[in-house]
Design a protein around this nucleic acid. Structure first.
Lengths: 345, 345
DNA sequence: GATAGTCCCGTGAACGTTAACAGTATAATG
DNA sequence: CATTATACTGTTAACGTTCACGGGACTATC
């Protein structure tokens, strides 16, 4: 019972049925003032009767505005991108924008990038949000120039490059807070399990770890660093490596909660008690972190809010541009995270 | 440094520069055979020089095909919808389709529904995937009729209604497997913490729990049922309620992993040992489930695969329709889950 | 009573592409 | 050599809207 009768009712049909011109119908659907109340009613009745929906496509063609926001994102197996997307979607829909999603997971090849760029331009997106995947700086530059000639681009949680506004959570400050908390609690041998090091957020969290240690006059040797990839398994592997290299390790900062979970489990398997022998601290404040045993101390950041803000800023920019107003060069923005102290540290 | 010069290079510019007609350029970009190799080259050079990208919008207008897949989804704070979206995105992009995302989180009002329908129709989507939110059956019917007149609609993980194909994981069978496993291990007083009962998947899992019990000749009294909402907190509350009402409860089936986590933590706080005193089993096989302490026994289902299949089926249908072929009424599809036995049961 | 202003409505052209058809050469066939 | 097929290219008309005009019928103003 799949219906095939694509109902092709157009503005012309409405005009005919209500005995006015096409233009008048157009005025009604865009509810413009200059149409008599009586005719407006008549047209509206015809619209309802015929179940007419104006074609966004035709409209876009002539107005040269799509009302579509291009979102390039990846890593939906992780917590961050998912939350971000939620915020983005929410605000976009509130502003009447649609989302054109382009994922960028598997192959980060040149071709992939080219394809995404072409798609975004072809669909005449009104703006672009580049959410997650890091780019090498030459790719970055090329992509940015390519797209930016057509629509404004914002980068979320990415290394800032010239002329590109970046909106992000202050990962560095968050990590610093976490490690400072460990230091306050008397820990002195504090390791780190990093995220994927190609990602700016991972690097920033590592930098925050380093900041806190050096401010306290503590060393941050290479052997206190284990490289993870955000997964629980890499947290497991990471803590084993760290404990082997640093027998007197008394705390670890895992760059996200999932790795913290993996690390806690492995530590307990190795006979270490958390937090007595080993304090563990995470990053994300995932729902699971509160109910893990022991409950995870972690860094809270509001990514939904970040996504919301990004869309709002971008929308403002696009509107200003469209109305020929002065375009304020958008500033970068850093949201401040906070610490949630629980049992693990 | 936000660029405003929306580069308006069209097919006409390309034609002019390469000294051919517009039509020939069109033939080249759609790489059709009937164009001389030499002219093709010349046109391609012009395209590259001018950085021309054909307007998907104009193309859609004339071909009356958007190549856009409407996805109506919600609940991205949960594991399921996220995985599903991943699969959908992956396959869509492989097939050259774009995704138009419409969230449906907050207000499930009539207005909301109307807005979504209008959007989908206005954008002339080629097909619609209704991912998560349940609808009351009259809403359902109205929505379906409204949209289906324009594009085929598939429902994922929803109560089947007349004429609507549903693709889903077999939640009922999964739950049954879980509870049967508990029974095999000698458990006799098995409670359930349900998901949001408005959702079909939650109801199916509850039905599976009931199936297994009655097949084994065991009772499934109302007081063995606690209603949750997928969150860890509701798992916590759920197990407390169950233990109070059923002092000799020796196992619980939580309808998702997050609730299982909450339940395990609460049980341990109440002095029960998992799995000795109380066996716990979840549903989803989230990454965290493997590293929780104790590691969670749970039901594994491949939602990425489900999303992939859904898109593929829908695409096939749309293509068949477009080519005027016979349209096979798409069958409903159930993916079989499997059990992952770990420590908690 | 002429002039200007206001309110309402319609006409024609455009937006950027593809579909359908109509050529014009050149090569193959009898 | 005439005829027919083949390979390539161009012309015209859509697709469904909105924009920039223009103009008629009233009403207000001097």
């Amino acid at each position: 019972m799949v219906s095939v009768n694509r109902s092709g009712v157009t503005i012309r049909d409405v005009a005919e049925r209500s005995g006015v011109s096409i233009q008048t119908v157009s005025r009604v659907i865009n509810n413009r003032p200059d149409v008599a109340e009586e005719t407006r009613k008549r047209v509206q009745v015809a619209i309802a009767d015929l179940r007419f929906r104006p074609s966004g496509i035709a409209r876009s063609l002539v107005t040269r505005k799509s009302g579509v926001l291009g979102v390039v994102a990846g890593g939906f197996q992780h917590y961050g991108p998912t939350r971000l997307l939620t915020g983005i979607e929410r605000e976009a829909s509130a502003l009447g924008w649609h989302l054109l999603l382009q994922s960028f997971d598997q192959a980060r090849s040149e071709d992939e990038l080219e394809r995404i760029g072409t798609n975004l331009i072809s669909e005449r997106v009104s703006g672009v949000l580049w959410v997650y995947p890091e780019l090498s700086s030459d790719q970055e530059q090329a992509f940015y120039e390519q797209i930016a000639a057509h629509a404004p681009v914002f980068f979320l949680s990415m290394l800032p490059v010239t002329g590109t506004p970046v909106l992000s959570v202050d990962n560095r400050a968050g990590a610093r807070m976490a490690v400072e908390h460990l230091i306050t609690r008397g820990r002195r041998h504090i390791g780190i399990i990093t995220g994927e090091i190609e990602l700016w957020s991972a690097l920033e969290r590592q930098a925050g770890w380093h900041d806190a240690l050096s401010r306290a006059g503590l060393p941050s040797p290479a052997m206190a660093i284990a490289h993870g990839d955000w997964t629980p398994a890499s947290g497991d592997a990471g803590i084993r490596q760290l404990l082997k290299a640093n027998p007197d390790l008394d705390a670890v900062f895992a760059s996200n909660d999932q790795m913290a979970f993996g690390a806690m489990r492995a530590a307990m398997q190795l006979g270490r008690h958390v937090p007595q022998d080993l304090a563990v601290i995470g990053f994300d404040n995932t729902p699971e972190s509160a109910v893990f045993t022991p409950a995870l101390t972690t860094v809270q950041h509001d990514l939904v809010e970040l996504g919301t803000l990004a869309v709002r800023e971008l929308h403002r920019l696009v509107e200003a541009q469209r109305n020929g107003q002065d375009i304020p060069r958008p500033a970068s923005l850093m949201l401040q995270p906070s610490l949630v102290v629980r049992e693990s540290a």
